[in-house]
């Protein structure tokens, strides 16, 4: 009874709540794009690198707060520099990349924590979608749109490169340049997603929907589609439930994603 009342109140009070709709729009746009990009990251076996990369957003946000610029720009700038590093490391097979990435990114997380004032630290680590404004909403839709448009052009080539770099290079694909473009898209969605679920959990939004989709997909078409769908469902249901139960949206989004993953695992085993 209590729950039902809560639910009704929610709809009555939130029906016209523009703020909530904006949050949901940003979340769903970020969820779709990061789910889809995550599909390629899983196949490229860069789940961990992606996770570490998201932590670099933290010092970026810290610097942005210190210099009074938009945190997205700060996060994007520092992520871009880190991306150049990952991109260069990808070509060097003689380096212990995993350890280097782990050390570098843990260090940047530490720097970020020191840079960001205590009051803003929680928001930077775990995100705060409720602070999104109309401009954020429009911006998120545009970025997600660009990501899908670019991926429509390059996804076949990226896939060829993942299957066999030799095949890709011998058929004239510039794998090096392609990786750069792909990482750039990842950086854009991470910088955007940090606002929704924070630096600590953004790696999860990249990987969990795609890992879920992989369990139930027989073809690449299904895999890409389901990755984006699970991204949308995780973000949408997560933000909605967070509002409904007055809990933080970031962790809720990830937990919803994890529940979908468990269900997909059960379906796979059957």
């Amino acid at each position: 009874m209590n729950f039902q009342l809560q639910f009704q109140n929610f709809f009555l009070s939130q029906n016209m709540d523009q703020q909530f709709l904006i949050s949901l729009t940003v979340g769903v746009a970020v969820g779709a794009a990061s789910g889809f990009l995550g599909a390629f990251m899983i196949l490229k076996r860069m789940a961990l690198v992606g996770d570490a990369l998201t932590h670099v957003a933290l010092p970026g946000i810290g610097l942005a707060l210190i210099f009074g610029v938009n945190p997205f720009i700060g996060a994007f700038a520092v992520l871009f520099l880190a991306m150049l590093l990952v991109w260069k490391l990808e070509q060097r097979t003689d380096l212990p990349v995993e350890a280097l990435v782990g050390i570098f990114f843990a260090a940047s997380l530490a720097i970020g924590i020191l840079l960001i004032p205590k009051l803003e630290l929680y928001e930077a680590l775990f995100g705060d979608i409720s602070a999104a404004n109309l401009l954020d909403g429009v911006f998120a839709l545009i970025i997600a749109g660009i990501i899908f448009a670019v991926m429509a052009k390059i996804s076949d080539k990226i896939l060829t490169g993942i299957i066999s770099e030799d095949l890709a290079v011998s058929s004239g694909i510039n794998v090096f340049r392609l990786n750069f473009v792909f990482l750039l898209l990842v950086v854009a969605i991470v910088a955007l997603g940090v606002k929704v679920i924070g630096t600590l959990l953004m790696g999860g939004l990249l990987i969990v929907p795609a890992a879920t989709a992989r369990n139930i997909s027989q073809s690449f078409r299904q895999f890409g589609l389901w990755s984006a769908v699970f991204g949308v469902l995780s973000a949408g249901i997560g933000i909605f439930s967070a509002k409904l139960f007055s809990i933080p949206p970031g962790p809720t989004v990830i937990l919803v994603g994890a529940v979908f993953f468990l269900i997909s695992l059960a379906l796979k085993r059957r």
Binding site: D156, T160, I163, S164, L167, S171, R214, Q218, F220, F223
Partner: peptide, 27 residues
């Protein structure tokens, strides 16, 4: 125009890509 059939081609059994999708990869 050079075609290449590599000797080794490692792809895990659960890689989500059908034969048709593979054959359609190159425009």
């Amino acid at each position: 125009r050079i075609g290449y059939v590599p000797q080794r081609f490692n792809i895990s059994y659960d890689f989500p890509l059908t034969v048709e999708e593979f054959l359609q990869l190159a425009p």
